[in-house]
Simulated assay, not measured.
Amino acid sequence: MSEPLHIVCPHCQTTNRVRADQLASDPTCGQCKQPLFTGHPVALDDVTAFDKHIARNQIPVLVDFWAPWCGPCRMMAPAYEKAAAELEPRVRVAKVNTEAAPALGTRFNIRSIPTLALFVGGKEVARQPGAMTNPAQIVQWVAAHVPR
């Protein structure tokens, strides 16, 4: 039997305990009963929700810092969506709209968008500025930076 991991619900932000070997079996939140993984990026425009996902998730968290007016961000969005379906449940995939949450853009010194940032154990371990329009490229970039 595998160790339980803390997984934050993308719907109600409750921290759940899920065994690692059960991640792929569509676990649901003990609080709101919604799926813990949807195969879509989670919008983390609220600073409190963002902090909880980064600090409490015991799986890597990939964040796309973007803005609605940004052409390259819009070009990358479909690839990021497809990458989310591939990466979950091994990686929580999230988006931060820097217009809705400017404090997060400032805190992480986001100078250009889109910027991908990968967090492991609450710490940023990798950053990639610029649009990646191929889902496989995003998945490969994450795999290259996630500790085995």
Rank of each mutant, 00 (worst) to 15 (best):
Val18Asp: 10
Ala101Leu: 07
Ala136Val: 06
Phe37Val: 05
Phe65His: 07
Met76Pro: 11
His145Trp: 08
Pro89Gly: 02
Asp45Gly: 05
Phe37Pro: 09
Leu23Met: 05
Thr14Gly: 02
Leu87Phe: 11
Gln34Met: 15
Ala43Thr: 05
Pro147Gln: 10
Asp46His: 13
Gly122Ala: 11
Pro60His: 12
Val142Met: 04
Pro4Met: 09
Pro129Phe: 09
Gly30Trp: 10
Gly39Tyr: 09
Ala20Arg: 15
Pro114Val: 04
Gly30Pro: 04
Thr106Phe: 02
Gln140Ile: 01
Val42Trp: 11
Ala117Met: 15
Asp46Ile: 08
Arg74Tyr: 05
Asp51His: 12
Asp26Arg: 13
Ala101Asp: 03
Pro41Lys: 10
Asn109Leu: 09
Asn109Ala: 13
Val96Phe: 01
Ser112Pro: 00
Arg17Asp: 10
Asp51Pro: 02
Trp69Met: 11
Pro129Ile: 11
Ala126Met: 10
Val42Thr: 15
Pro114Thr: 04
Ala77Glu: 14
Cys12Ser: 05
Met76Trp: 07
Cys32Phe: 09
Phe119Pro: 12
Pro10Thr: 11
Ala131Met: 07
Thr48Glu: 14
Ala49Ile: 00
Glu81Phe: 04
Met75Leu: 13
Ala103Lys: 14
Met76His: 07
Lys52Gln: 14
Ser2Leu: 06
Ala20Tyr: 07
Asn16Ala: 05
Glu99Ala: 13
Pro35His: 10
Thr38Leu: 00
Gly30His: 07
Arg111Ser: 08
Cys32Leu: 03
Ala49Ser: 08
Lys33Glu: 14
Asp26Tyr: 06
Cys9Ile: 00
Ala85Ile: 02
Ala126Val: 12
Leu104Trp: 01
Val120Asp: 03
Ile7Leu: 13
Ser25Trp: 10
Ile138Trp: 01
Ala94Leu: 10
Val93Lys: 09
Thr38Gln: 07
Val125His: 04
Thr98His: 06
Arg111Trp: 01
Cys29Glu: 06
